[in-house]
Nucleic acid binder design. Sequence first.
RNA 1: GCGCUGAUAGAGAAAUGGUAAACUCACCUCGCUUAGAACGAGGAGCUUGCGGGUUCGAGUCCCGCUCGGCGUACCA
Length: 830
Amino acid sequence: MCLGLFYCKKFKEFIMTEITKQRLEKYNPHEVEPRWRSVWEEQKLYKTNLHSSKPKHYMPTMFPYPSGNLHIGHWYAFSIPDTRARFMRMQGFEVLFPMGFDAFGLPAENAAIKNNIDPAKWTYSNIEYMTSQFKRMGTMIDWETTELKTCDPEYYKWNQWFFVQFYKRGLAYKKESFVNWDPVDNTVLANEQVIDGRGDRSGALIERRLMSQWHMKITDYAEELLDFSQIEWTEKVRVMQTNWIGKSVGAEVDFATPAGALTVFTTRPDTIFGATFMVLAPEHSMVAALTKPEKLEEVSQYQAAAKLASDIDRTAEGKEKTGVFIGSYASNPFTGKEIPIFISDYVLVTYGTGSIMGVPAQDDRDWAFAKKFDLEIIRTVQTPADWDENKPFMGDGVAINSDFLNGFNVLQAKTRMMDELEKTGKGKRKTTFRLRDWLISRQRYWGTPIPIIYCPSCGEVPVPEEDLPILLPENPEFLPTGQSPLTLLEDWKNCSCPKCGGAAVRDTDTMDTFVDSSWYYYRFLDPKNNASAINSELVKKWGPADWYTGGIEHAILHLLYARFWTKAMRDMGLIDFGEPFTRLMNQGIILGEDNEKMSKSRGNVVDPDNLVSEYGTDTVRLYLQFIGPWDQGGPWAPKGVNGLANWLGRVWSLYFETPDTQTENIGLSDLEYAVNYALKKVTEDTENFKFNTSIAAMMELSNFLGKAKRSALYGTPAWNNALEIFNTMLAPYAPHLAEEIWSKTGHTSSVHLEAWHKFDPSKLVKDSFELVVQVNGKVRAKTEAPSSISSAEAIALARGLENVRGHVEGKETVKEIYIERRLVNIVVKG
RNA sequence: GCGCUGAUAGAGAAAUGGUAAACUCACCUCGCUUAGAACGAGGAGCUUGCGGGUUCGAGUCCCGCUCGGCGUACCA
């Protein structure tokens, strides 16, 4: 912090004030802002009445992780929606704008390991500090009603409760599978948390391990999650979720092998006549049975290599196909031909059946494999005339070499083949999803303990509801063993079986923190509720959220899980709707001055605390909104901030400086037009998150008022009314300045309790306008015309203009166009 | 590779198919002996990344290209 500069400025201000006392007192945000914030807090001005009879507007934002410091991105994410929340409040809605902390997670634990601090202590002290930073933001967050920390037992108890309910309904289950192991954070990760083969937090290359882990059955909802008809989200997020869910419609087909039927999944059943080989994933369960003794060594070697290789190596772009012929043959169910069986790492054990039929002519991957191993290629779709015969053909065409399918196009052939498969029992229709069940076990300490007990005689037993919460024990040992720290706490781990009372042990993993964020927006309505997870009555009244805002990075993580959780809650009868967030808005990212992502190593980090100390909260908020469209983000241009501070100063003087001249000639209707125009623009733009143009409209208005001030309008009732309306428009944008002006202009209650003014459309109708006249699309003249002018009159008026006549006379008129209250275009020839 | 985006004065950006550049910063001139990293008056700056097309009219719609961002990537 730059205290030197700060005090120096203060001192200068003090001197100036003394010398020029008779002049206007300069607006001083550093005095005004904290003063109003404490008044608001005292008066509980922003208390939301959850039982209000007004229409509700629920506007949560994705709550932050308590990293220890609010950065400029937090200001962008939270202070801007606050403007809209304030606006909706003035529009007559009862608005809930909540805030809490997503407080479980790895950074706390990593800090504990590194600095030997208790993760709880670290987290709670961060929350305390960040809350004080938050309060400087001057938001209408109702801390008292909504504050929520997911690491509180009163919160995570209900994670455990949900887990038990899900368990009873078969939505939470344990299975052994290949999982993503992060060797740096020493835990498994969900598929959604693996980015380009690396852990999303640690950046470590992910290893594949076979482990027994808890999953949430999100795949039960795969089909429903593809349905976005109940929500208005951006195309981008819908597409990302749709791709992630990855629905493929096709068929499963059985191929006979010496070890029994080998089932493959294909989206192209029409190409079976061209299947000339089989490929299994190296981990496929039938590999052992199908491997001939003489191939055993080669196969084991390949399997070992595949196991060691990271996903990123296995899937690298342009990687040459590898594989091993395992010695056995399968029989093509339609041609009867014996085709060789391979293993290769381009087939994934986790997708479909983990095995495929190789159809090189119609698939570029199979083509590459066939070329590499010199396998037979049979075209089953007629290639276009100019087709390069050294390429596979994936397009539509007529089936060839395919017996009863010959002559049909791809779509027809698919249907016929699937009918045939089902008729003959050689296969069946099948839809496969890319989406896997959500793996929620984490081998870490700082999270919600999984409420399951393992009993030698009763097996896995969920903890009875009355025994919840299973508290996280204090003072764990943090050893980088790859085991959960909870495994080392014998006293905690050992327990008795709730069923038989015999000796048993607890599950020592904790839940993925995305469990916490899957339902917190319901908990905000009653965060201290000790009797149930949610207050059904309030959730019924307030849910689903009207608008939800946050970063796009959660498009397929949090936002997909939250939808799943909500649907599961609906099916449990807890709520009566199936989507958590009716509308979604993703803010962009604020970049450094150098147009690069802000980072300490680049040295381009903008510190909001310093900015607030220099310019005040209102200026920082306004600048972040003015910089551009909110969903676009953009680079930080430090010079512009000052401009916003100066604008606030000019607004201030608009109210409190007396004009010394009366030189402008401005009429009442101009004033009314300007005010109503701005009001219309600000109303519409604020509603739609277009804060930059909204502020521009207010600047235009203040520029106009600055001029109008030096006219006869000054001091009239209309002038005073205009200033008052402008004051209320400012309130959501510059809450402190607006309140100070409001109070200094003689009001005794808060401007934030005022109703938003409605614009008067009748004041926006002008009785004349500037008619633009084009000849052949080129502007040739402009003239004032009455608004009521008819098309014929407008054209006649245009033709009469001297500049136009020169371009029109003696030429043949082809067309005349009049666009109401805008322009005339005369098209001539010759 | 595929999908989605974006490209407008020196910078950030406005613009229901209808006068391109609102608004802010920066720049220039003048005023103000000061609210001064201020204020007031005025000014300069572009044919909207490139090439086609549709249209009376295109920054906006369509096609191709160049460059950047985001997402995704052997999913059978």
